[in-house]
Design a protein around this nucleic acid. Structure first.
Lengths: 248, 248
DNA sequence: AAAATTCTTTGACCCAGATCAAACATGCGA
DNA sequence: TCGCATGTTTGATCTGGGTCAAAGAATTTT
């Protein structure tokens, strides 16, 4: 059973769904071949903890499918999500022994793993990997800083709208569409997980979602399926520059 | 005058004060020599903007002395600091054209700069630089995530204590002392800058500092010179695990 | 199908921190 | 020395979001 799960994903890097975005994106054929030799797949069920904060971590890897979260917890139980890991995102720190965060599978999750030592050795010899990893880490740092603005300065309503914005954008790029006009996607998080993401309580999350619904910014089919009739309107609600403000 | 300032710092990497922590920390002598050829110093006065958000950025570099901040600003003027740059910290993004943040000199500032293009070319050929930059970026990401917990879940008092903790630690490591017992250092930020760091108003910052003073957690000589009689006490006030919880 | 579990919504009330306002330092240029 | 700018403290009041409580879905177990 577990084995079946493990095998249910491409063993060939060639037709890997995250091939073009993951840490191996820049690799040449021969480099991929060497990666094939040291890689292995692992599956986790929704709710399972992938890595406990403080634990020694002997592997690194990429999310192939599903969603995981990085969370920090204080002694008294207050928790803050500090990372949201979607397909192609990288988990783990070459050069570090442990994770300072809990990594939890929010949905069923498949990861493409490498034992840490061989991967580190390979990084030394393969600038394409090191280079891509630097690029991805810089992107994550940008995302973390954007998130800091959300946590530090936005209202509850703006926070919810900001999260929906992010989820809508990621869903669009995953399906190779431009983020504009009407958009439809699923919420991969419970109200509580959203609260942990945004530094709110789950009650406030629920109330603000109801308010956005009442005001026609979004509509819901069931609790998790979201329709955004006008993406620009959502961006305004998020307090973002409506033009996205991106620059290469 | 400007020239005098520019020249008042070591042109020799050999006796550079940030030599062992900056992006060049791992470089061999010959690599340093090539860096020497493309480097130049720039000075900024307190309050001066180093880079405007959205501007094209044609250089990268290290903070040699002084302090700079990275801030994000919303259209309506709300601002959040997203980075605090101390000596040895790196500014700029190889592979990116513009900065998404304002970079502002908080004190008089000296930077060791490289034109972006030559630096990128050098990175390609010099794994020591790329490797060190990855390491530094991962550290920054950790710091950003720690900060997210502060912004999302801590009380105003805990936020102030957390900031003091960070400043005390950094001052200690800069002076090669262990962070423990009684500590003395200067606040390099105005109350307003602290507020932008912590997602608070400057009034709340002022009140909480007064409260910590009243409760004997800190004492002030003037507005900026801080004495922490018991560092462990400060850590408790910050809501941090008092043992620091660090792991290699 | 009833019961138990998990997730979500909504209401009533309260408080930490924001906002508005004023006074107090400190330093600096004229 | 005065006047002005910049930064800080403190007070009075208000409010967004937290807390406590209870009642609905929706899903799974028995």
């Amino acid at each position: 059973m577990l084995n079946e799960k493990t095998m249910s994903h491409s063993v060939e890097c060639g037709d890997c769904p995250i091939r073009h975005r993951a840490v191996c994106a820049r690799c040449e054929t021969d480099e991929l071949e060497r990666l094939e030799e040291i890689k292995y797949y692992r599956s986790f069920e929704a709710g399972q903890t992938v890595i406990w904060s403080g634990d020694r971590m002997d592997f690194v890897g990429s999310v192939v499918s599903g969603i995981a979260t990085l969370t920090q917890t204080m002694e008294d139980g207050r928790t803050q999500m500090v990372g949201l890991l979607l397909p192609s995102d990288f988990v783990g720190r070459p050069g570090r022994n442990g994770s300072p965060y809990d990594v939890v599978a929010t949905t069923d999750l498949v990861m493409c793993c490498f034992r840490k030592k061989p991967f580190e050795a390979m990084m030394e010899r393969t600038p394409h990997i090191a280079h891509r990893l630097l690029e991805m880490t810089l992107d994550e740092l940008d995302a973390a800083r954007e998130w800091m603005l959300v946590l530090g300065r936005k209202t509850a309503r703006e926070k919810i709208a900001s999260l929906l914005t992010i989820l809508a954008r990621r869903d669009a790029t995953l399906n190779l569409r431009a983020p504009e006009g009407a958009m439809v996607f699923d919420l991969p998080l419970t109200r509580e997980a959203m609260a942990d993401y945004l530094g709110l309580t789950l009650e406030t999350v629920s109330r603000q979602i109801s308010a956005l619904k009442r005001d026609g910014v979004i509509s819901l089919q069931g609790k998790r399926h979201v329709t955004v009739p006008d993406f620009v309107r959502l961006l305004e609600e998020a307090g973002d520059d409506s033009d996205g403000g991106l620059l290469a």
